[in-house]
Computed example of a mutant assay.
Amino acid sequence: MTTAACPAPALTEVAAAVRASWDRDTCDDADRAGWSARVPSRGQCGATALVLHDLFGGDLLLAEVWHSDGTLQGYHWWNRLPGGTEIDLTGDQFTPGETVQPPRVVTRPPGPPRRCRAQYALLRRRVLARIGDPGAGR
């Protein structure tokens, strides 16, 4: 008996599921104090990029983010999908004084992330449940 492979979910469906799944509990600890429902993407980039990478593959992109005074604000993650399209669901989190620098491709190490492991696992479960993936309980 053969089983048909499940079709990949549509990017628009996944993007909506990701956005609906963000909250303070999925926010990076470094940004949690500044998180609000008004800007729900704040602090969500790392976990979001990993969930998209799980579902679509491609490249993980990482860039420094600088304050207007030249000090480092932090780091920003997003994705380049197979075929070259960049997708950044959290690019709207930055204030006018924060500038994302050009990215570099980062190879994802095997296993779960070292930072924000719990946030990633929670976001992944929520997104998979919203898109109807039977593996959502993992």
Rank of each mutant, 00 (worst) to 15 (best):
V106D: 01
V14W: 02
G83Q: 07
V18C: 07
P109Y: 05
T26S: 00
A4G: 08
G70C: 13
R80I: 13
A118N: 10
P7F: 09
V39L: 00
T85A: 12
Y75N: 12
Q93F: 04
W77F: 13
P102K: 05
V39A: 00
R38Y: 03
Q73F: 14
G132I: 15
P109F: 06
L55T: 06
L11E: 01
A47W: 01
R125H: 11
R108T: 01
D28H: 04
T26N: 00
V127A: 09
G97H: 12
A136E: 13
D31I: 02
V100T: 04
R19A: 00
V105S: 08
A17G: 02
L55K: 11
P96E: 10
I87F: 02
R117E: 03
T107D: 08
D54N: 06
W77G: 12
T107R: 09
P109E: 09
Q44C: 02
L55S: 08
D69S: 14
L81R: 13
A30E: 02
P82Y: 08
G70E: 10
G57I: 08
T99F: 07
G57Y: 00
H67R: 14
P110N: 08
N79E: 13
P96F: 06
P82L: 14
T2W: 06
A63N: 14
R104Q: 05
Q73D: 14
V14E: 03
N79T: 12
C6P: 07
L61H: 04
D59Q: 14
W78T: 12
A4V: 08
D54F: 01
L122D: 12
P109R: 12
L72H: 13
L123I: 08
L72K: 14
V39T: 00
Q101E: 05
T71S: 11
C45Q: 01
A37P: 01
A63K: 15
R38Q: 05
E64D: 10
E86M: 08
E86Q: 09
A37R: 01
L72M: 14
H67C: 15
P134I: 14
C6K: 10
Q101A: 07
D69N: 15
L60W: 02
V14F: 02
G74V: 15
T3F: 08
G97T: 15
T12W: 05
C6Y: 06
C6L: 11
F94K: 15
R130N: 11
M1Q: 05
R32T: 03
H53W: 04
R108F: 00
A129T: 11
H53L: 03
S21E: 00
I87V: 07
